[in-house]
Design a protein around this nucleic acid. Structure first.
Lengths: 341, 341
DNA sequence: ACGACTTGGGTATACGTTTACTGCATCAAC
DNA sequence: GTTGATGCAGTAAACGTATACCCAAGTCGT
């Protein structure tokens, strides 16, 4: 069942059907009604591929994330999807799981489907891959992972703001030995968080001595906590590079009979939805996934709409801020060791 | 840059280029090499919409879930995506958030993009909507939500197996007052879990007296726990219809100073990845999301491959089983009340 | 040496839309 | 009544690919 069939049954030409369906003004209302009647009767839906072919517009937007099973992303995907539908777009979702092969596949899939633009939320895309997209003038929007070059749309995140609040909050609770569990060093955004931590500590005259490295997973958080427990000078508080890490840290602490927040204060980062349902609810730095997605989508849509790729550098910024919950408490006045398992 | 351009540069016809790209045997290896050389040089990728148009195959599979932010789904989406790519398909992901309007949109989007098949993991799709898909002979695979009609491919889940294990496990720990937090009653799969609980309790001669209703969210779990606390005969163990509910229950218990598992044993359902990272790690009934996705994908691919829709009823079954972790423990010998906040 | 196959590449059509162009009315203005 | 403008619907040409069909040249049997 196609447009021609509609035309035949409504006794008009295909052009008229097309115009009626697309609400082009130059079609007689009465004819339009006749066309719509047939369309509804037959339950006809236009073929998007044919449309895309002739119009040169696929009405598909690409979304490349690193891992959809990371609770940080589903919220973003959801928001993206809603906005896409509202704007009559489809989204092509791709996850790289940080695998170069999958990254290449992602790009290929995007190009084959002729996406009109791509939002990139994964780090480590080879420049050569991005070249494929740029070569075809596909608008790109990077979220916190983009290169610092002109003409690149980048959503930046102000990490310092929230992390400074976290550190100051802990300091106000009389914590002095504050540890940091960093994210993987290949991740620029993780590096930025570590830097923000160091800066914040320095600002209030504390030494950011204890920094261990995680990998932004729960398992990594567990390992980091083990490492922390081995340190000679036990921290009384730990700030984590993301919430997943914090969850791992909490879990490992539990295994060692360490009570949160009595024995140890913990602060996360991201404020994934789950954070508030932990026991205890996790104090964390908020970075609204929904807002992030909205900004990214809007930016992408703007780029797609712009006829000529502008060379001006577009920057957007997302502010982060501390959300107080119950995984942080006053530091113990004396250095009484917690009970080891 | 299109196939014709390649043809021009390789000094062959478009037919040859097409054949070379698709590895059709009838093309001279030397010519093929020449074609591929140009293809690589230009970084050419075939246009999928044009392909779809002429071949009548979109190479897109639909995937309708209820809510991607529900941690149960991302794992499934991921597996589905991987399998799709392996089979040279793209997936069109849609979430209904249990909104009739979005369900309708989902179906429309699927049809417009001419998906070759759809996997449905959401409940409450109107029969009239499904009719649109059936009318177009789009292969459908339901995961635990399908109608019991012939010719419908349905992946069924054996709830009884795992829930019986859970109940028996609790009974072995000397629990007699075992509560159940049910899921929303409009959800058939939730109803099935409740039934399985009742059956299991009856089997060992216990009364399934305390059943409160949640909604498969963490907030619902919290509310259910509040309700449970108000009951005159406090349960010593509670089985939850899904893990999200269990997390909510645990969280609310924490707020009331109730310690898990000392004061209260908790069992979840689904074994989402998070379950093992709770404090304490959640004892739960496993229902492998990955396996589920694999079964569903395979079933869908089979249906798509089958030339004529078979009328035989295809059934697949997924077994569930209890995973022991640390949210369950021996029931207190005496009925010493837990401390209220 | 000649016809019958076989092999493999080219020609041209079709897929389902959109849209530039064409052409027929109708109508206003003179 | 002729001319010019305007409104609207129809005709046909794209969009980029796959493939049915055709045809040239080579192979082989007799």
């Amino acid at each position: 069942m196609d447009l021609r069939e509609i035309a035949r049954r409504a006794k008009v030409s295909t052009a008229t059907v097309s115009r009626a369906i697309n609400h082009v003004s130059t079609v007689n209302p009465q004819l339009a009604k006749r066309v719509w009647k047939v369309v509804d009767e037959l339950g006809y839906f236009p073929n998007t591929q044919a449309r895309a072919l002739v119009s040169g517009r696929s009405r598909i937007l690409g979304l490349i994330v690193s891992e959809i099973t990371n609770p940080f992303f589903p919220e973003i995907v959801q928001t993206f999807e809603h906005l896409a539908v509202e704007n009559n777009y489809e989204i092509l979702l791709t996850s790289t799981v940080n695998d170069p092969k999958r990254m290449e596949q992602s790009v290929r899939r995007m190009i084959e489907r002729r996406v009109e633009g791509v939002a990139i939320l994964t780090f480590g895309m080879e420049e050569s891959l991005l070249g494929h997209l740029r070569f075809r003038k596909v608008p790109l929007v990077f979220v916190d992972v983009g290169p610092d070059a002109p003409g690149i749309v980048n959503i930046r995140i102000n990490y310092l703001n929230g992390i400074r609040q976290a550190v100051q909050h802990l300091a106000a609770l009389r914590h002095t030995r504050i540890a940091f569990v960093a994210g993987p060093s290949r991740l620029k955004s993780a590096l930025a968080r570590t830097e923000a931590f160091k800066t914040s500590m320095a600002e209030i005259g504390l030494l950011p001595e204890v920094i261990v490295t995680g990998d932004h997973t729960m398992e990594g958080g567990m390992r980091a906590m083990v490492e922390l427990l081995g340190a000679r000078d036990q921290p009384t508080a730990v700030v984590c590079s993301n919430d997943m890490t914090a969850i791992g840290v909490m879990r490992e602490a539990y295994d060692h009979g360490i009570t949160i927040p009595t024995d140890l204060s913990i602060v996360g980062f991201d404020d994934i939805r789950l954070a508030q349902f932990m026991t205890p609810p996790l104090t964390t730095v908020q970075m609204s996934q929904k807002e992030l997605a909205q900004i990214a989508f809007r930016a992408l849509l703007d780029e797609v709409g712009r006829e000529s790729r502008s060379t001006q550098k577009s920057e957007y910024e997302l502010i982060t801020s501390l959300i107080l919950r119950r995984s942080t408490a006053m530091a113990r006045p004396l250095n009484d060791a917690h009970r080891e398992q």
